[in-house]
Design a protein around this nucleic acid. Structure first.
Length: 285
DNA sequence: AAGTTCTTCAACCGCTCCTCG
DNA sequence: GCGAGGAGCGGTTGAAGAACT
């Protein structure tokens, strides 16, 4: 025998919410709160709606701290970075974006960001193939070294392992509110011998953080390619339909990361990248 | 101007997780 | 420890509007 439905579907209204219903729900919640029971709430509030529907409407639309409108580049970076790391755990991703809901983030990813990333991935494959061909030729002093793409590594983390090292500025709106998060300051430096496509130069960024529940210091490193230095305005990225080097590499393709006490520091990572023995490969998961 | 296709996003569905008796 | 029931989550749907032909 299946489980009982959460409400009598024949006697609840479905579909879009009217302004009147919104007003009833909002004023009820502002006066009484949820009372810890969403299932009983619609009856108390005088709404012919399923409790789950009320909960969703409140969380995704009526809450006063909801941020409506387009996502910023910074938010794009956060979403891409976290998606690459933890997959489609939208509630975890949304928790790092103040004012955004999991539904918002999920919709944004499915309708826009995913396509953007796929387009970039296709372009990158073409570029990589071209550069791989270069490897088979004898290097000439005048030709640029082949493109070295950092490894894209996907790992799974529990919530307790999770932390957000990608933001330089802990005071920005994207900084987590959890005071147990300790942000290290990002550092970067040019890496000799790491020219990328079209003569881009690589720089390694490294963060040290102390995740809560863990006294040990963890770290995270990634590589950012740019012709003009980190944050530079590169025509190269426009070719991929992207707006900035950060959006492209930090968030997805150029992500070289390892979290944990054994993570390579910036010098180690740099030497890994320039070493022909450990030349990173592109891997997608 | 009308019809068709595409895009967006609010809402639903069904599942798992969590809490409580 | 177990089961019931509510909360929360992620995948999916479908209506509405925008863009295109």
């Amino acid at each position: 025998m299946g489980r009982a439905p959460c409400c009598d579907k024949a006697n609840v209204k479905r579909g879009p919410w009217s302004p009147e219903e919104d007003m009833v729900l909002k004023s009820y919640l502002e006066r009484h709160g949820t009372g810890g029971n969403w299932i009983a709430l619609p009856q108390k509030a005088g709404l012919k709606r399923c409790g789950k529907s009320c909960r969703l409407r409140w969380l995704n639309y009526l809450r006063p701290d909801i941020k409506h409108g387009g996502f910023t580049e910074e938010e794009d970076n956060v979403i891409c970075t976290l998606y690459n790391k933890i997959g489609s755990r939208w509630s975890v991703i949304a928790s790092q974006l103040p004012g955004r809901t999991d539904n918002d983030v999920k919709n944004y990813w499915n309708t826009k960001l995913k396509k953007k990333m796929m387009a970039a991935q296709a372009s990158l494959s073409t570029t990589t193939t071209t550069n791989t061909n270069l490897i088979t030729h004898s290097p000439s002093p005048s030709s640029p070294p082949p493109l070295v793409i950092p490894t894209i590594k996907t790992e799974s983390y529990t919530c307790d392992d999770f932390f957000t090292p990608f933001n330089h500025d802990a005071t920005s709106a994207l900084a987590p509110t959890d005071p147990s998060f300790v942000f290290g300051h990002g550092t970067s430096f040019p890496v000799a011998g790491l020219p990328g496509p079209s003569g881009l130069n690589g720089s390694v960024h490294h963060y040290s953080t102390a995740p809560h529940d863990d006294a040990s210091t963890a770290s995270c490193s990634y590589v950012n390619w740019s012709a003009n230095g980190p944050g530079g305005d590169d025509a190269f990225f426009a070719d991929f339909g992207l707006e900035s080097p950060c959006e492209f590499f930090n968030g997805y393709f150029g992500y070289q990361e390892k979290i944990g006490p054994s993570a390579p520091n910036q010098a180690t990572l740099a030497s890994m990248l320039v070493s022909s023995d450990t030349k990173p490969q592109i891997t997608y998961s």
